[in-house]
């Protein structure tokens, strides 16, 4: 079976001022469907850049990025936006909920891009919120929720459109230990019970321990891998 994510000789460089900074130096990576991968490494190692390339938020300078059988490194901005809507669910470190919308309205946002009817959208939002244990907080706005609850809403938003891949950028970075463990347990459950493929960037070894595989990046290169039971 071919991997769901496949990167070949991916290089990425940025121009900052007059300097060209090479962030990734020819990365090769395969991620299997149903895998829960933790990407670790020190600051500036290129973790988030790699995650952005996998998620179609950015494009490599050279190399090939293939996700769910489609090459995304050469798609236009418009095509990439449509592709993200269909295939990617995002979970950010700082939740990034829209502050003026209620929890259920936030969760509904990705569904606005689909052809689902209002009733179908409502039904899916309800299921997603139940899945993250926040059905009773549907009408609350983000500022009325704790950090852990906001991250649960963000997870509900990420899964509501049933994407191919969940990408998480430091999902526990802004949470205390208890909330962090609850969030990681929820992601693990989504991976194990719903079969969601998850790619997560984290600094936190405790968070990484919930993943099925760990990869370490340093100076733009993958250096070693750890498999978890």
């Amino acid at each position: 079976m071919s991997p769901i994510v496949s990167l070949r000789n991916v290089k990425k460089s940025y121009v900052r001022g007059k300097q060209k900074v090479e962030v990734l130096h020819g990365v090769d990576l395969d991620i299997e469907a149903g895998e829960f991968l933790a990407l670790m490494g020190p600051s500036g190692s290129g973790k988030t850049t790699l995650l952005n390339l996998i998620a179609g938020l950015d494009q490599p300078t050279t190399g090939e990025v293939r996700v769910a059988g489609k090459r995304i490194d050469s798609l236009s901005r418009g095509a990439l936006a449509a592709w993200r809507a269909r295939h990617i669910g995002f979970i950010f470190q700082f939740y990034n909920l829209l502050p003026v919308l209620t929890a259920e309205a936030n969760v509904e946002v990705p569904l606005l891009l689909t052809k689902l009817s209002r009733a179908e959208r409502k039904q899916r939002v309800k299921i997603a919120l139940e899945l993250v244990g926040l059905a009773d907080r549907a009408k609350h706005k983000p500022n009325e929720l704790s950090g852990g609850q906001q991250q649960r809403v963000a997870i509900a938003r990420a899964i509501v459109a049933d994407p191919t891949l969940l990408v998480c950028d430091e999902p526990t970075g802004d949470l205390d230990r208890q909330n962090a463990e609850e969030i990681m347990a929820l992601l693990q459950a989504l991976n194990r019970t719903q079969g969601k493929t998850i790619v997560m960037v984290t600094h936190d070894p405790r968070a990484a321990s919930f993943a099925s595989r760990e990869l370490h990046l340093d100076k733009g290169q993958l250096i070693d891998a750890v498999a978890h039971a």
Binding site: R77, G78, A81, R84, F90, P110, R157
Partner: peptide, 16 residues
């Protein structure tokens, strides 16, 4: 700007 970036991340096109 961060909220608009989130919308784009979720799949809203530039024109939308």
């Amino acid at each position: 700007i961060p909220e608009l970036a989130v919308l784009k991340t979720l799949g809203f096109s530039d024109n939308k």
